[in-house]
């Protein structure tokens, strides 16, 4: 008997991406540069988060034609973003046979109360989180991979660090809780009890956990890896920099050799201009992306 789109194939696929870098690309040419640099997958989208931030307006799923072109241009997996709660965008992305859907706060949410019921889909989903409760709610809805949100399009890693520290710190606390405390904790963080108990038992999330949002340098990528994530998403950080091909390759190498400062020093040399960063406090609250979703 052959079984497709099982929990094991969905979560197992994310396992194959570990230790790797997933790069935002807006056309086939960028997708090829990313593949050549050693990306494990590309995220196909119309505008990188830095431009969404600068241009404003409603950000939606990309043109299916563009996604198709990117799928045809590379042999590595292709992911694409749907708006939070926009299950029809997700249906369209599944019909395009993208390899993963990112239900993403970088796009303008389509539903202020409900995330997509991801269990209904054959294609796997990755979702963002700021803390353990949000991560487990998304997994409960069927996400097969999690990424900490960070603050996309800023080139500032501080929010990614905050979210990763929050998730890993909570997991460490959970491993020391008694069973009665775990029931109360599940209520406090508004997460399914069974998932809370599983995380407490295993000492880690049941799915792969990448970092995202604000990673702009090889050192940023290695920092997130040392904090304990399984890999990194880099959005605006590559194609908004002075020398994308070189920076992309350096971030790939830093993600592999994240514990080797000599290699990190070597790959960080002469990369040209990084993307221009934004101080988080300088962003009006209504324009923060990480607070979208719940």
């Amino acid at each position: 008997m052959v079984a497709k789109s099982t929990e094991l194939t969905k979560r197992g696929f994310a396992q194959q991406l570990k230790g790797g870098v997933i790069m935002d690309v807006i056309n086939a040419e960028q997708a090829k540069i990313a593949e050549e640099a050693g990306a494990v997958a590309v995220m196909a989208l119309e505008r990188v988060p830095a431009d969404i931030r600068a241009q404003g307006g409603v950000a939606r799923m990309s043109d299916p034609g563009l996604i198709q072109e990117i799928i045809e241009a590379v042999t590595i997996p292709v992911m694409a973003k749907a708006r939070i709660g926009h299950f029809v965008e997700a249906q369209i992305l599944e019909a395009l046979k993208v390899d993963y859907i990112d239900e993403s706060e970088v796009l303008t949410p389509a539903d202020e109360r409900h995330h997509i019921n991801k269990r209904e889909f054959r294609v796997p989903f990755v979702c963002g989180c700021r803390d353990i409760g949000e991560a487990l709610r998304r997994i409960g809805e069927g996400a097969s991979m999690i990424r900490t949100k960070g603050e996309a399009g800023t080139g500032n890693v501080v929010e990614a660090v905050r979210h990763a520290r929050s998730v890993f710190g909570s997991i460490r606390q959970m491993t020391t809780m008694s069973p009665d405390e775990l029931f109360a904790y599940a209520k406090d963080i508004q997460a399914p009890y069974d998932l809370v108990a599983e995380v407490a038992r295993e000492g880690r999330l049941p799915v792969v956990n990448f970092a995202a949002g604000g990673i702009a340098t090889p050192a940023d990528a290695a920092l997130m890896m040392q904090l304990g994530v399984d890999g990194v998403f880099v959005g605006s950080g590559i194609f908004k920099s002075g020398d994308p091909a070189r920076r992309a390759k350096a971030i790939v190498e830093a993600t592999t050799h994240y514990e080797d400062p000599r290699i990190l020093a070597e790959v960080s040399k002469g990369l040209g201009e990084p993307m221009v960063g934004i101080e988080i406090d300088a962003i009006p609250r209504a324009e923060l992306m990480a607070v979208r979703g719940w």
Partner: peptide
């Protein structure tokens, strides 16, 4: 042959 069975939607398990 790489990606011989198709894309992720065609990933599968069997005995």
């Amino acid at each position: 042959r790489r990606n011989a069975f198709g894309r992720q939607l065609d990933s599968f398990e069997t005995d």
